[in-house]
Amino acid sequence: MDYAVHILTMIAITGIAAVSLNLLIGETGLVSVAQAAFAGIGAYGMTLLMLHAGIPFLAAALFSALIAGAIALIIGAIFLSLREVYYVFGTVGLNMIVWAILLNWDSLTRGPLGIPGITRPEVLGISFADNTAFLILCAVVLLAVFAAHYAIMKSNFGRVLHAVREDEEAIAVLGYKTEVYKIVIFVISAALVAFSGSLYATYLSYINPSAFTVNDSIFILAIVILGGLGSAYGAIVGTCMLVGAFEALRFIGFPASIAGDMRQVFYGLILILFMLYLPRGLFGKFRI
């Protein structure tokens, strides 16, 4: 049971990141491979605020999400001119640079030694030190993010995003400032995934740059592709499958020495096969 609780918690946290990425890729067509970087900014921001400034979890997490959003604002503006594949490369570069900073700015982040001792949150008097309680917290946040996604997409704002997806030039001609929309959704997405980073940090009680690499961003990308573009539900299902099924692989009997590589084989296959035969993913409304 404990194991199930753990896996579900990881699914919830990763699910938040996946839903936030869907806002970018699925709804707006911005293929970003930098979610892990913003998760890292959220995680480290929250941790430093909590440990050095004594700020309680919720405030620290919200504040670090704001910081991530601010950084996304600047980056989003800088990356406006990048299109398609170049945008992808730009985000890869962003992730690499953020990761390098987390790794090498010793004095702030302790580099590869990471930051231990992150306590579980106490929100509104309730302590979440118990794993099951924490899972419920994560599930609640996931639900909130899901609701936010739904709200955004049902609104006018969401409709413009879809239009940007389909034909950016057309909608720009109609007078919509597409740059603003793209930056705003980038900021929102970054803030959401940053919050998931804070949850991650407080769950494991220890953070380390190894959790925020380009490979982690690619993993979330694979989830969104699997789940389907344009569907938050798909993102969550995709998360369940990739995280849950991969864990299940442990029990199938692959020797542990290649299990890690077998997972990579599967997930490489997913990327290839889905692009070839199921570009819409499982529940997607759009294809890349």
Partner: peptide, 18 residues
């Protein structure tokens, strides 16, 4: 689109390396 090809090629890389 080129992005689709890029993602598929990423799959090739991941698969090949593993």
């Amino acid at each position: 689109s080129n992005t689709v090809l890029l993602i598929a090629s990423l799959g090739v890389f991941t698969l090949g390396q593993a």
